[in-house]
Design a protein around this nucleic acid. Structure first.
Length: 359
DNA sequence: AAGGCGTGGAT
DNA sequence: TATCCAAGCCT
């Protein structure tokens, strides 16, 4: 199958089977950039509502540039990898202050925080229709099978093959449609498990299919083993207001808000852990520790059982001294919606609101 | 350059 | 239930 056969068949298939996605209704570089940042390591179906809400709130570079960080992070809450939102915000401020628009060069784009080779090529091809090839996890899977690539997908060898093939197969003048078609094929047909090879427009040329090796491609690196941990956090309420603190930079959930807490030590009860963590993190003595709920959630390779408690300050006039946060606030239940929390703490907030009147 | 960085859907 | 991992980037 020649490169032109491959791209012709792929584009014909894409024309009939492409999904109706919100970011496919525009060529606005800023909107395309927003969608691409959101789509990094994230499933398409989850991005849709975030994208629409974001574009509604921040329709252009200047509106995003003038937004405050809390608003930016709140709109991103639940999507994960929050440095993406913070970098996008930084980028908008940078572009806005210099009076520029989204750069239309690979170098200009990759010089911006959070934009790497994939995202730069995606913006170049989709928004500006420049002939830039791209490789994402979909392309890695499609090419691993089509060319029967016998190397781990993230290895230097495999990456060299992927980018070389992507460039060779790219039909000049149609990069935007073609790149999306290639990723769409990976998303809809060339599935991780049980790929729909009978419906594949390029099945004739697929080497792994012809060799019966579809299930053995792509070759992925071994994943990290999951770690089970127990955590506890304390929802301190005083005069009808909740104590929250803003997480430090350069740590997981940087810039998000949380209730003080942490991991249980060996043979430590959740109640003891809350008291200890509160003292370590805020120097506040607490008592009257009473359960709200136990929440199960996960992040990265951690599986967390989070024990959430209401608690009271032992000395009401004592002021917090922060050791694990950069800021703190006392906020009402309603105001909890205006701050971004990690998913586990957000789950707990939902549950505590159901109990708000009994506590 | 190997590991950090989130979350929930799919299977 | 447990495991994998998605339109990656940064250090």
């Amino acid at each position: 199958m020649s490169p032109s056969d491959f791209s012709r068949k792929l584009l014909a298939w894409y024309g009939k089977n492409r999904r109706d996605l919100p970011w496919r209704k525009t060529k606005d570089p800023y909107s395309i950039l927003v969608s691409e940042i959101m789509l990094q390591q994230t499933q398409v179906d989850r991005v849709k509502e975030y994208y629409l809400r974001w574009i509604h709130e921040f329709p252009d570079i200047s509106s995003l540039a003038s937004a405050d960080e809390e608003k930016v992070l709140t709109l991103w809450e639940g999507l994960g990898y929050y440095s993406r939102a913070r970098n996008l915000h930084k980028t908008s401020i940078q572009l806005n202050s210099t009076g520029k628009n989204v750069p239309d060069s690979i170098e200009g784009l990759t010089s911006l925080p959070g934009i790497g080779p994939y995202t730069a090529a995606a913006v170049m091809s989709i928004a500006f229709n420049r002939d830039e090839p791209l490789v994402d996890a979909n392309v890695e899977r499609v090419f691993s099978r089509f060319f029967d690539v016998n190397h781990p997908v993230k290895s230097r060898e495999a990456q060299d093959i992927f980018w070389k093939k992507a460039k060779q197969l790219l039909p000049s003048g149609q990069a935007g449609e073609y790149n999306q078609a290639l990723m769409e094929l990976g998303a809809l047909i060339c599935l991780k498990t049980n790929p729909l090879c009978d419906s594949c427009p390029v099945q004739d040329g697929c080497k792994a299919l012809n060799l019966g090796l579809i299930d053995q491609r792509p070759i992925s690196a071994p994943s990290k083993k999951t770690i089970q941990i127990n955590m506890a956090c304390g929802v301190l309420k005083k005069n009808g207001l909740f104590f929250i603190q803003k997480r430090q930079e350069n740590d997981v959930w940087a810039g998000l808000w949380e209730f003080p807490g942490g991991r249980l030590k060996e043979d430590e009860s959740p109640e003891k852990a809350v008291v200890r963590e509160f003292m370590e993190e805020t120097e506040l003595a607490i008592h009257n520790v009473r359960p709200i709920a136990t929440v199960k959630h996960s992040y990265m390779n951690y599986r967390v059982t989070l024990h959430g408690f209401f608690c009271d300050q032992y000395k009401k006039d004592q002021q917090p001294i922060l050791h694990a946060a950069q800021d703190f606030r006392w906020v009402s239940a309603a105001e909890l919606e205006e701050f971004a929390f990690p998913a586990g703490h957000r789950k707990l907030i939902t549950l505590l609101k159901e109990n708000a009147f009994t506590n």
